[in-house]
């Protein structure tokens, strides 16, 4: 099952490499990973998605917790949560294609953030499935470049991940 694990780590040199190293060392997979400082400058928040069974995810969270620089973590997929990913996509857009692409982007609530006479660059946010669906709706031949941020997420309701 796909899991989203959110981790607060000390904002220190080397902390990130320990998390990534742990995944490599123990043969866990990482599908996406995003990390940035938080409102508390001593902490970074790292979100990673992984494909793992219940037993594996139990080991992953336990092993992550053993890292000295990991302060706290939560498996967001344990409960109701919000997840978002940002995608920038550069498309060939000429002639009749331009209107069609614009219409599809509107349906997905995408924004055109850069335009040339032959290309559109579209910004899209949403769940991973939504971004995947948008990509599928674009003919392969029109896609020039794609960059995705990886998943970020929060628990719904009152529940928080904080010190």
């Amino acid at each position: 099952m796909r899991r989203i694990i959110s981790v607060l780590i000390e904002n220190e040199a080397g902390a990130l490499s320990r998390v990534i190293g742990l995944f490599a060392q123990r043969n866990y997979n990482i599908e996406s990973l995003t990390v940035a400082p938080t409102e508390d400058e001593t902490l970074s928040r790292l979100t990673l998605t992984t494909e793992a069974s219940d037993k594996q995810v139990e080991q992953i969270t336990k092993q992550l917790n053993k890292l000295i620089e990991v302060v706290k973590l939560v498996d967001l997929t344990d409960g109701e949560h919000i997840e978002r990913e940002l995608m920038l996509i550069k498309l060939k857009a000429a002639g009749a294609q331009r209107a069609e692409i614009k219409r599809t982007a509107d349906i997905f609530r995408g924004q055109i953030v850069d335009v040339t006479n032959a290309t559109y660059t579209i910004q899209l946010t949403g769940t991973t499935e939504k971004l995947d669906a948008f990509l599928r709706s674009m003919a392969d031949s029109t896609i020039m470049e794609v960059v995705r941020s990886g998943v970020s997420g929060l628990s719904r309701g009152e529940k928080i991940l904080a010190l």
């Binding site: 040199a13 080397g14 490499s17 320990r18 190293g21 060392q25 000295i68």
Partner: peptide, 14 residues
């Protein structure tokens, strides 16, 4: 050294 020893230490400091 911090990198080489990372998977075989409980923790390390530079």
């Amino acid at each position: 050294m911090v990198g080489i020893s990372r998977p075989i230490v409980k923790h390390s400091f530079l």
